[in-house]
Design a protein around this nucleic acid. Sequence first.
DNA 1: ACAATACGAGACTGTCAAGTTCCGGAACTG
DNA 2: CAGTTCCGGAACTTGACAGTCTCGTATTGT
Lengths: 222, 222
Amino acid sequence: MNEINNEESVGSKLADKVAEKPAKTLGRKRDHTRDAEILEATIDILAEAGFDGMTMDMVAARAKAGKATMYRRWSSKAELVRDALTWMNRNHLELDLLPDTGTLRNDLLALLKPQSIEEGERKLRVLAGLGSFFSQNPELVNGGIFEPWAVVNSELMHRAASRGEISTQADIEMACQVITSMASYRGLVQRKTFDKHFYTSLIDVVLLPALKNPITSPNEME
Amino acid sequence: MNEINNEESVGSKLADKVAEKPAKTLGRKRDHTRDAEILEATIDILAEAGFDGMTMDMVAARAKAGKATMYRRWSSKAELVRDALTWMNRNHLELDLLPDTGTLRNDLLALLKPQSIEEGERKLRVLAGLGSFFSQNPELVNGGIFEPWAVVNSELMHRAASRGEISTQADIEMACQVITSMASYRGLVQRKTFDKHFYTSLIDVVLLPALKNPITSPNEME
DNA sequence: ACAATACGAGACTGTCAAGTTCCGGAACTG
DNA sequence: CAGTTCCGGAACTTGACAGTCTCGTATTGT
């Protein structure tokens, strides 16, 4: 019977090559609401086990899906993870209603809600377990995890600059990099929470002084 | 013949249990100069492939050693990696001859030699591929990779404080964290070099303003 | 010389996960 | 109703790697 099956499959492959799409609207439809659930389960497992520690069976079990269902949508583990990362970095941020308390200090602090802290730490755990994935797929080195936050911070600082609260000489891009790098270093290397207390210190001790007095007298330069 | 061998091995195991250490100074001695070579090869492979991408055969081939030799010294891959990390973080730094140019700015810049940049990036690559290892061995979360650098920077800043170059109110620990976190973020996430140009900007735009004007007038606090 | 151990090289074994295939059943189309 | 494609679940195949063992050789103490 294998011979018969082989003959049929060869025939269908030829038919594909000729007709390209012999049947498209037949049978049960794919349930695309499962896509999001599988991707969300993938992010969960990635955060817990990293890329190499994650198995397709784990994801299938978490999403209560069959592996065949997953391989019908993504051709490999790498593709699933790539889509999951894109899904994770999708922007659910409302740029319209930014805080506007009158001072840059309070604006920055208003952005640090407990919810975004927790979600940020989840993303950090995902990022930490992705080393081997990036070494195999160097093309998508994904710097964009902190992009939305940096964009918002940059907007707040530009507002502060235009109302004269900080210097027009201030290097806003550098200041935003300080925030994101301190957040990731504290989460990835030090394994401590980026909580309000620490963030307040960072703002008062480093960011505001740097933004208000960008040039300190280049006296000793040669 | 297998039976004879089994009998012998069982006999020797029993002898071990009775005498515990029947012979210690017999036979060829272990060549401990291979230890360093194997550990160095381990670091190399870790930097290139990460923990999960590294195989014992790769390390053995790189070090031109047999796997039996490796397992005679380390009982598992995890133990080998742990020793390799300790070896990598060993301190080859001469705290005695620190730069002393008269200004904090030049002192900090003097520490950034091309050699230490390259070695630092190698360590960062190792760290980046270690996510799954840490998730399996949470006890040794190794924040100590940047410790020596931070200690040196801290010393330079304290000297600057005692000669009145920066404020005595300055948060030196926070400033050192800014340096190490910017270096690791730039290497791990942005995949750019922590070169002299960028470091100079960081010092002039962020660090020196913060250290010289630690309090900017807490005017708008409520 | 001899026994015991180390060495590099590589064969061998057991486990684990990626990817494939099959099952019984459900949903959609004509 | 009949044919097709989907679903979750599970068995199966295959390849890779950790860890063990064997072989021929080199080095050491007695």
